[in-house]
Design a protein around this nucleic acid. Sequence first.
DNA 1: CAATTGACCTGTGTGC
DNA 2: TGCACACAGGTCAATT
Length: 299
Amino acid sequence: MPELPEVEVVRRGLERWATGRRIESVQVFHPRAVRRHLEGADHFVTELTGRVLGAAHRRGKYLWLPVTEPDGAPADRALVAHLGMSGQLLVELPEAPDEVHLRARFRFADGGRELRFVDQRTFGGLVVETSEGDGLPDRLAHIATDPLDPTFDESAFSAALRRRHTEVKRALLDQTLLGGVGNIYADESLWRARLHGSRPTDALTRPQVAALLEGVRGVLGEALAQGGTSFDSLYVDVNGQSGYFSRFLAVYGQEDRPCRRCGTAIVRESFMNRSSYSCPSCQPRPRARRRAVPARVPS
DNA sequence: CAATTGACCTGTGTGC
DNA sequence: TGCACACAGGTCAATT
């Protein structure tokens, strides 16, 4: 599942292989791939054909490339991409056979490698969005920065987190609070911070929030370092094809395996129709919350 | 307004 | 063998 590190690897691949190239033709093979482009697939194609892709940017799990006219004049729009759960952006030779789940193809005027959007489960998508220069497209305004972003405001995040009245794992997955963290890295971050995902956010201490952020930073940074080294430069690829995940993960998908800190068996719990993995010893469940009892008023 | 839930998808694996 | 179903889970609209 592409989360921040995987998406960042894709961004770097796009920067290298797509930026600066003029689009000669666009084909859309599945309407769901451009469902967020409300004007329709034909309009999506028209918006891009003949234009040039700019530098690749990322916000959370979203990618965008500003689009310019061939003479360099700004077109005030950007190609925005989200990989969803199974999306891939591949850079391949034109003669390479089509993938089973090929959803869109971009051919370039230089006749070189083409860009393909492949997505089995079709949760991902592409859209052309109005935007100014390299600025954040409007569509992404609600996505928060991530802790690896130089503009990330740690104290603001800490305050916002503790203002919430929810469980800490839900908060970690809330992209308006923190960008880029999905189910896998949420569990890994919580394990590193020795916190159970059910802990109420409004009861977290400042040191606990600091530990959590350190956990998030650590796991994202290390995953990115590993993903970067296993990255085949010809492939703008994700999805853990390289398998670097399994050696790396401490709790996610590790049910019944010993915790590498204390040896206790990792447990899987149901969470929002998904799974959460944690060490029951290092990350004890919070005690049942006492309801706030109103002070008894003397009658 | 904040928090929560369900819908959207399809390939894979499991149990009957 | 064939069928039903659980599971993977990011995002957003709808609901509480």
